[in-house]
Design a binder for these strands. Structure first.
Length: 219
DNA sequence: CCGAAAACCGACGTTACTTCA
DNA sequence: TTTGAAGTAACGTCGGTTTTC
């Protein structure tokens, strides 16, 4: 259906508040005019003065009207872009937040394991006999059922001991000093700051198009 | 060549109005 | 029929760039 020109809507009373002729002439451009303007905008969002005059002549409009249409069209395009960017960033944020939540849970579980290991270490150090304490620790590992959980974890390769998993260390018969180092490693792994600092470590919010404002918005 | 004034242009915010649910 | 939200053409202002003198 064709759009109605405002000038043709005789039934409607027009306000006399505004005396400007342009505002009373034609409220909406015709479908054909819009179609041409849109196709022009698709090829170039800014018009050269000569093209503007030519297009205005083709459309039966004033060059000023064409210029204003392009200005408004650019503004509409920009706000659409902002809307799309917002949707994308929100999706990214939600995905990161969920990853963060699961890491927090992992952290909690690591802390629990640490506490148990510290308890074991405390009770073994009171004994004073290294050989005994080693076997007690081993027995306790088996009793607590931690062997599978912790033994499966590959530690960061910082030195000879931490490059091995706990199961291997136990096979070699580790002492309480080595065990403490191992616990320290676990503690390092379990340290998790805020979502923001965690994200920054991946440069997630260091994208070029002003993402800090979104971060501020969501934080 | 340099600098001030004028002209031009685009972005942005706003207004007045229409359309539609 | 009324009303509020959304869309749109046009405007005013401001700041940056180019042109003119």
């Amino acid at each position: 259906m064709e759009r109605e020109d405002y000038s043709q809507v005789s039934k409607k009373k027009r306000s006399n508040k505004n005396n400007n002729m342009d505002r009373n002439h034609q409220r909406r451009f015709s479908d054909e005019q819009i179609r041409l303007l849109e196709s022009m905008f698709e090829s170039e969002t800014k018009l050269e003065p000569r093209k503007k005059v030519q297009l205005a002549r083709e459309l039966g409009l004033q060059p000023r009207q064409v210029a204003i249409w392009f200005q408004n069209r650019r503004a509409r395009w920009k706000s659409k872009q902002i809307e799309q960017d917002f949707t994308t960033l929100r999706a990214q944020y939600e995905s990161l937040a969920s990853q963060f939540e699961s890491l927090k849970q992992e952290k909690q579980s690591l802390i629990l394991q640490l506490e148990k290991l510290n308890e074991l270490l405390g009770s073994s150090s009171t004994c004073g006999n290294v050989t005994n304490s080693k076997s007690e620790v081993k027995d306790s590992f088996l009793q607590e059922g931690l062997e599978n959980d912790i033994g499966a974890m590959q530690l960061q390769p910082r030195d000879d001991n931490t490059n091995k998993n706990v199961g291997e260390l136990k096979q070699e018969g580790i002492g309480s000093y080595e065990l403490q180092n191992t616990i320290q490693e676990l503690g390092d792994r379990a340290s998790l700051g805020s979502l923001e600092t965690w994200c920054r470590s991946f440069d997630v919010f260091d994208q070029p198009r002003g993402c800090s404002q979104w971060l501020n918005f969501w934080s």
